[in-house]
Simulated scan of single mutants.
Amino acid sequence: MIKGVHFLAIVALLSLAFSLVSTFDPSPLQDICVAIDDHKSGLQIPKNTENQVGSNVTTMNVDQILGLNTIGISLVRINYAPYGQNAVHTHPRATEILVVVEGTLLVGFVTSNPKNRLFTKIRKKGDVFVFPIDLIHVQFNAGETNVVAFAGSSSQNAGAITIVNAIFGSNPPINANVLAKAFQLDMNFIEALQKKF
């Protein structure tokens, strides 16, 4: 009787372990979608960086390339003017890997609570950096020349939340009293920031 109970317990544990392993990270691939149209991605074309942040992101995700449907990847090209940045942001659905193909770029991310530790590196031509899923990260051209980088993500649509836009440009706006208390700033200053967005 005891041997039978042990056998059943072992079978139950193995079944549980197998079900966890087999369902932990299933492949999103259910079928493939071959894009018939000869679509030019535009990733070879430098984009205009004359804007407030001094950068331009050319996105190639499932919205632009139908063949990415269910594949689980996407790509962007980022052009940076001198001292331009890809505004502080996060990707809620993907890890990002970035490679610098021209220039020098300061990159980094902040770990989650409670430590909120900043990790930064200087990346030059050919260097790679990984931004873990959903962590706030920064990309800044600290030089006097243009920078070009390509980044791939582990999602057909990584999503992007630009932190400053989300906080100060939400619609409807977040109550200025709430933001003043959260940032420990004067409410007039918060209202001035909200008007910029």
Score class of each variant (00 low, 15 high):
174 I>G: 00
75 L>P: 08
77 R>E: 10
164 V>I: 11
107 V>T: 13
125 K>E: 12
147 V>G: 00
125 K>V: 04
121 K>A: 12
125 K>Y: 01
157 N>S: 11
89 H>C: 03
106 L>Q: 11
157 N>W: 01
86 N>L: 05
127 D>V: 02
154 S>W: 00
158 A>E: 01
113 N>G: 15
93 R>N: 15
90 T>P: 00
183 F>V: 02
88 V>F: 13
140 F>K: 13
120 T>C: 11
74 S>N: 13
80 Y>I: 10
86 N>C: 05
156 Q>K: 01
131 F>S: 08
146 N>V: 07
130 V>K: 04
97 I>T: 14
81 A>K: 12
89 H>D: 06
166 A>F: 05
115 K>F: 12
135 L>I: 11
146 N>P: 12
183 F>H: 06
120 T>Q: 14
86 N>W: 02
104 T>E: 15
77 R>A: 08
82 P>G: 03
135 L>M: 15
152 G>T: 04
159 G>R: 02
158 A>D: 00
99 V>F: 00
112 S>D: 15
123 R>L: 13
157 N>T: 07
121 K>P: 02
140 F>C: 07
87 A>V: 07
92 P>K: 12
106 L>V: 10
78 I>D: 01
81 A>T: 00
167 I>Y: 10
87 A>Y: 04
113 N>C: 14
137 H>Q: 14
163 I>C: 11
83 Y>Q: 13
135 L>D: 07
173 P>E: 06
172 P>E: 01
91 H>T: 14
187 M>K: 13
115 K>Y: 14
140 F>Q: 07
96 E>T: 10
75 L>G: 07
165 N>I: 00
124 K>M: 01
81 A>N: 07
178 V>R: 05
146 N>K: 15
161 I>A: 10
137 H>I: 09
74 S>W: 08
104 T>S: 12
121 K>C: 05
153 S>E: 01
164 V>R: 05
156 Q>M: 03
145 T>V: 09
74 S>Q: 08
84 G>L: 01
124 K>L: 00
175 N>Q: 14
98 L>F: 09
139 Q>D: 08
165 N>R: 10
167 I>F: 14
178 V>Q: 11
73 I>P: 09
130 V>I: 15
96 E>R: 09
77 R>Q: 06
176 A>P: 15
187 M>P: 00
158 A>Y: 03
109 F>T: 11
174 I>F: 11
127 D>I: 02
92 P>G: 13
183 F>L: 05
145 T>R: 12
123 R>D: 02
90 T>D: 00
158 A>T: 01
179 L>T: 06
89 H>F: 07
151 A>P: 01
74 S>C: 08
138 V>C: 06
126 G>Y: 08
179 L>E: 03
88 V>G: 01
103 G>H: 09
142 A>P: 02
122 I>S: 07
186 D>K: 08
89 H>I: 05
114 P>D: 13
83 Y>H: 13
182 A>R: 04
73 I>W: 06
176 A>S: 15
123 R>W: 04
136 I>Q: 10
116 N>M: 04
116 N>G: 03
72 G>S: 09
128 V>S: 07
99 V>E: 03
116 N>R: 05
159 G>V: 04
107 V>F: 08
125 K>M: 09
124 K>C: 02
74 S>E: 05
144 E>L: 01
140 F>G: 06
106 L>A: 08
116 N>A: 03
93 R>Q: 14
76 V>N: 14
148 V>Y: 00
161 I>W: 02
172 P>Y: 02
162 T>F: 13
119 F>W: 04
106 L>C: 00
79 N>R: 06
113 N>S: 15
157 N>Q: 06
